[in-house]
Nucleic acid binder design. Structure first.
Lengths: 210, 210
DNA sequence: TGGGTTACCTAACAAGCGCTAGGGAGAGAG
DNA sequence: CTCTCTCCCTAGCGCTTGTTAGGTAACCCA
């Protein structure tokens, strides 16, 4: 009956990048939950649907996790951590003399790649956060604030270099950027647009001097 | 048992701006549904919760609407129309010689006021769209495209006046702006920030020459 | 006075939810 | 060979979901 909705994707890409099917039941469950959360939201992601996506029966989920919210919490938390790590790693890979402009563009691209192409976790985290139960949401406040602070610093660099008009509040710039990035999941479709170009444009948009 | 969740707000502001309680059961139901959708999402907005919010019992909803999705569809559709009308009206109220810069700032402010302060419909529409059943989503594709086109034109004005570097794709600018605006519901809290200031900053952010 | 419509109710339906109790098959250790 | 542990199953709990059937008052128009 519900098989049509259960098969949300042709069983592909559940394992992110690793081995075919033996990466531990726990990881498989988290992967499946992330995929479902991303595409259907919190309430529609049922424990039975998660179980069936990894080839076990509903009740067996509880051998690996104590509750649905424990799974969701772990997915959402990991989603923030993944994008944080992606951005930090991308910035670290830059030459030491890279200017704020390149750093901004790099951070934008890392965020988009992480949330659009690489990670159901990040996408699930972004899309479902607003409607999560309070308990789950509280659980990852700290992680989210850490990511926010990363961008606070990034934006501050731009101001220090005089790349943004100082009459504009730094908060506004950060909210504009993060808003646009987090919303990208609503319009982006693989193959139809180039993330490199979008990143370049987004960065150029907020930088007033060349 | 679930009373705590049912009373999402102290019964306030259901009627947007009009009379106390006699605006027709149909309108009351839509108002309640919009409020619930905005704060809890699609699946968690039950027919019984909508009914109890307007003081009737679950089954009585079906005297006014044929199904839950009919209610949701109407709310989501109206949500797009409301913000469209708000932006068009705000632009029309501008003096004829207003420049693209003022027009952009005005459109931004109208969108934010509509989605953050005035309309549960708009907010519900923005936040829940991704997880709606396909049938409901299809129903308001046209309305959404119309709103998108409104911004396409607005952004194009900016290019025509040379206010944005022509090396940046117009699509990118529109997606950046609409993304930031649609995401505002995730961080905005009444009274903590000034919509006028945010609008000014957002507009200034994307305009390169003063 | 009476018939019909409008608006609501109660009660229930089949289905699905998160979750649990109890059991069974297989593997590894003593 | 047995004991234990891991992993999964079946069956079902109490509850909620969208929706429907049938009943009951109050009103409007004749």
């Amino acid at each position: 009956m519900t098989d049509e909705r259960d098969a949300v994707a042709p069983a592909a890409d559940l394992s992110a990048d690793a081995t075919p099917e033996q990466l531990g039941a726990r990881r498989q469950i988290l992967n499946a939950a992330a995929l479902l959360l991303r595409h259907r939201g919190y309430e529609a992601t049922t424990t039975r649907a998660i179980a069936s996506a990894v080839g076990i029966k509903g009740g067996s989920i509880y051998h690996h996790f104590p509750s649905k919210d424990a799974i969701v919490g772990e997915v959402v938390n990991e989603g923030v951590r993944v994008v944080y790590d992606a951005v930090v790693a991308a910035l670290a890979a830059l030459p030491a003399d890279a200017g704020p402009r390149l750093r901004l563009e790099t951070a934008i691209k890392a965020h988009l790649l992480s949330s659009l192409e690489h990670s159901d976790y990040t996408s699930a985290s972004i899309r479902t956060f607003a409607f999560l139960p309070d308990a789950v949401r509280r659980e990852c406040r700290a992680e989210r604030r850490r990511y926010e602070d990363l961008w606070r610093g990034l934006v501050n660099e731009l101001y220090c270099e005089g790349l943004i008009d100082s009459s504009i509040s730094q908060d506004s710039v950060r909210l504009l950027l993060l808003g646009a990035l987090n919303w990208a999941g609503e319009w982006y479709r693989t193959g139809r647009m180039d993330i490199d170009e979008i990143s370049r444009d987004f960065a150029a948009c907020v930088l007033h001097s060349k």
